[in-house]
Design a protein around this nucleic acid. Structure first.
Lengths: 346, 346
DNA sequence: GCTGGCACTCTATCACCATGAGTGCCAAAC
DNA sequence: GTTTGGCACTCATGGTGATAGAGTGCCAGC
């Protein structure tokens, strides 16, 4: 029997079993399921079906005389085809909206979203910082420091400010730098960062022969600054400590790996990057993520957008045995709410 | 018998007991101690002495037929009067120096010091960010944003840059703001932030009657900016996850409280603040810190300085049962090394 | 194809016991 | 009077059955 042609009944049993196991963390036996699943079947029949499910790799038993628990494959089928997500009550959505309302400044919004996720789900909330590519450059300013160092300030989209110190090939006077920034502001203010980048390269090529070395350095500086501005991929995490409450994660090593991954960031970032692909809610169950430290965890993510453009990803990290039917709509809703909030402040 | 007049022998036994307990975490019995302490005494005699130590509150037994373990008071006496700290081998110091050398920019230095502490001690390293009070103000710059918002940029001591967005009572043109920053730079550039603050207040008083409202706002703006610049107390933590390896801390609740304290920061900051008082290495054992979440922990700190002026505090957080004789010189050395490094880059 | 029945397996729990580490106290020895 | 050996006592630990309970697989009958 192939996975695809799983009988209606088998599916229903897998669903009941998974729900039950998620609820109380104990392996589920045939007797329990006979009572619980709503089907009028004897335990014996259910045992037969469960044996099939086990052959298909959807469930397994920890030992001979224990009930069954879902495998990763079982969870996968559960969330893909069996899950009934109840939509969030509008009351809850209102509360969530409210808790994102108080803040202004996109930095804080992201932090609040992360805390919101962790508070509502009692797991770890994660929000990647919005990509700045499509933000508009508002102003560039250069301030001379000492010995061939210049402080460049980039004001992006009214809110975010980025500094970077750049090394120059010679000293520049304040008035020279003023000239540079005036030129750049005249040329590029109000344009999107990605646009700026492209036009910068063009200008560099065009003016190569022209003698104005001032402009040359201006462009080079700008290029340098933009480079540092765009690389800043990062995320905000909240409620890591909630994970300490799940005893299934509390093996000495597991938890440690997990926290180290949070500190290291690069792995988690790669994972979040993958989530930008699909439009809606994405779910990685256990080892599906491909990162060892997340073997015992599931990750539920959704992208958030401004003007239909994906700016970043948010989500929740918790044990494989999580209440998907609750978490999924929460992540979905939070993504929408954050998107809406960002659209407003645009 | 009072604490002060503890017999030579009793002291030696307390020392041996504490060292032994720190080494292998088991309650220490009279027989072990008889073998271990180097005194030619029978277990029975040692039992008598231990009973005295217990009466004085220096040791206790977890249950009737277990050996003794030091109390907080016992640890206190141990570190205060009994401890023999072996100085670090110069080879080790060299390695530590080297690991702080690669970096430049004080922000990174602090991070590296924190990692150094946690790596060498296998516990959590913590370094408070240097206070900026005594840093010199290099430049102030104002950039107009939109609708009554002005971006203020503070360049401090060549390295650190602080932004803050301030709300103004009306719109200012770029040239007005230029005028303001010119004035402030002329007046205050190169002065210490704390000086600036004082002179700012003076000027505000003096010019109150004079009509130049431009200058008034200039001063008010500067005041606002300085306020945000100085409040930025913070610290860098490294190796929290090392703490997960100590089973004595791995009670569900304890570890959670600890990590939440790390996230919250304010409590830890208060504790670090207290350490600025004493000049040298300070030690808080268990509940001595006064913070419940640190009841099972000890904190070893030392201030770091530039020009003899205390800039901040660094230290190590670990279980009460830590190898003080190793940790103390490490913390001490790290403080010296960081101080030296900061002095160089001044 | 479903079901009841039955033998079997494995875990969890409890009581029980022996062991060993350690204590406190006391009386004798130094 | 300090030290010591001896002794009775306590308590945690670890092993051993015995037992109960949950659950399974399989088979024969409906």
């Amino acid at each position: 029997m192939a996975l695809s042609e799983l009988s209606e009944r088998a599916q229903q049993l897998l669903k009941a079993l998974t729900e039950r196991y998620i609820r109380d963390g104990q392996p589920v036996g045939s007797r329990t399921l006979a009572r619980d699943a709503g089907l009028q079947l004897s335990p014996a029949t259910i045992r037969n079906v469960m044996a099939d499910l086990e052959d298909l790799g959807l469930v397994r038993s920890p030992h001979t005389s224990a009930g069954r628990i879902p495998t990763v494959l079982g969870y996968r089928m559960f969330v893909d085809t069996l899950l009934t997500v109840q939509p969030l009550e509008s009351r809850v959505v209102e509360v969530m909206k409210a808790s994102l309302d108080g803040d202004d400044g996109s930095g804080k919004l992201v932090g609040s979203a992360s805390e919101l996720l962790s508070d509502v789900t009692r797991m770890a909330g994660i929000v990647s910082l919005p990509r700045s590519e499509h933000a508009a450059l508002q102003r560039v300013e250069f301030i001379p420091l000492t010995q061939r160092k210049v402080l460049a300030i980039l004001v992006v989209s009214n809110k975010e400010v980025q500094n970077s110190i750049i090394d120059t090939d010679r000293d520049y006077s304040a008035s020279e730098l003023q000239e540079v920034s005036n030129y750049l502001n005249a040329q590029f203010a109000g344009k999107e960062l990605s646009d700026v980048r492209i036009r910068l390269v063009e200008e560099l090529r065009e003016t190569r022969e022209s003698l104005n070395s001032m402009m040359q350095t201006a462009l080079q500086m700008a290029d340098q600054v933009l480079g540092t501005a765009e690389q800043g991929e990062d995320y905000v995490l909240a409620g890591q400590t909630n994970l300490l409450d799940f005893d299934e994660l509390c093996n000495a090593g597991t938890m440690r790996q997990l926290f180290e991954a949070f500190n290291e960031k690069s792995h988690i970032l790669k994972l979040l990057d993958q989530c930008v692909q699909g439009r809606g809610v994405q779910i990685f169950i256990g080892e599906e993520s491909g990162y060892e430290m997340l073997d015992e965890c599931s990750v539920v993510t959704a992208p958030y957008t401004v003007d239909g453009e994906i700016l970043g990803v948010l989500g929740v990290i918790g044990p494989t045995r999580m209440a998907y039917e609750r978490v999924i709509p929460i992540v979905d809703a939070t993504a929408r709410i954050l998107s809406a909030a960002l659209n407003l402040r645009k």
